[in-house]
Amino acid sequence: MTSSADEGKILTLKQVADFLKVTERTIYRLAAAKQIPAFKVGGTWRFSKAEINQWIQRQQEVGKADKT
């Protein structure tokens, strides 16, 4: 669940990579392939923290469904 402080928070590619503990290149590839919620501002990727948290929840649900 997201807190109200996270609602409007916008993250950079590096911040998302750090948050998810993956490389920046991985996040870039996911964003370019539209596999993670992202948008561009002036040619650079930006991410809504609330949308990233929702995406994480969906990934966890998919993982649970795969185990059954």
Score class of each variant (00 low, 15 high):
Met1His: 13
Met1Glu: 06
Thr2Met: 07
Thr2Leu: 06
Thr2Asn: 07
Ser4Leu: 10
Ser4Cys: 06
Ala5Lys: 15
Asp6Glu: 12
Asp6Cys: 12
Asp6Val: 10
Asp6Gln: 15
Glu7Tyr: 10
Gly8Met: 08
Gly8Thr: 08
Gly8Pro: 02
Lys9Tyr: 03
Lys9Leu: 09
Ile10Cys: 03
Ile10His: 04
Leu13Tyr: 03
Leu13Glu: 02
Lys14Val: 02
Lys14Gln: 12
Lys14Thr: 07
Gln15Asn: 08
Gln15Val: 04
Gln15His: 08
Val16Asp: 03
Asp18Leu: 09
Asp18Gln: 12
Phe19Arg: 02
Leu20Asp: 05
Leu20Ile: 13
Lys21Gly: 01
Glu24Thr: 03
Arg25Pro: 01
Ile27His: 08
Ile27Cys: 06
Tyr28Leu: 11
Tyr28Trp: 15
Tyr28Ile: 02
Tyr28Pro: 01
Tyr28His: 13
Tyr28Asp: 01
Arg29Gly: 00
Arg29Met: 06
Arg29Gln: 10
Leu30His: 08
Ala31Met: 14
Ala31Asn: 07
Ala31Gln: 09
Ala32Leu: 10
Ala33Gln: 12
Ala33Pro: 01
Lys34Ile: 02
Gln35Thr: 06
Ile36His: 10
Pro37Trp: 08
Ala38Phe: 08
Phe39Tyr: 14
Lys40Gly: 03
Lys40Val: 06
Lys40Trp: 04
Val41His: 12
Val41Gln: 14
Gly42Met: 12
Gly43Trp: 12
Gly43Ser: 11
Trp45Ala: 00
Arg46Thr: 02
Arg46Ile: 02
Phe47Cys: 01
Ser48Ala: 08
Ser48Lys: 15
Lys49Pro: 00
Lys49Met: 08
Glu51Cys: 04
Asn53Pro: 01
Asn53Phe: 03
Gln54Ser: 10
Gln54Ala: 10
Trp55Ile: 04
Ile56Trp: 07
Ile56Asp: 04
Gln57Pro: 00
Gln57Lys: 13
Arg58Pro: 02
Arg58Tyr: 01
Arg58Gln: 12
Val62Tyr: 09
Val62Met: 12
Val62Thr: 11
Gly63Met: 11
Gly63Phe: 11
Gly63Leu: 13
Gly63Lys: 14
Lys64Phe: 06
Ala65Asp: 09
Asp66His: 13
Asp66Ser: 13
Lys67Gln: 10
Lys67Asp: 05
Thr68Trp: 08
Thr68Val: 08
Thr68Gly: 05
Thr68Tyr: 07
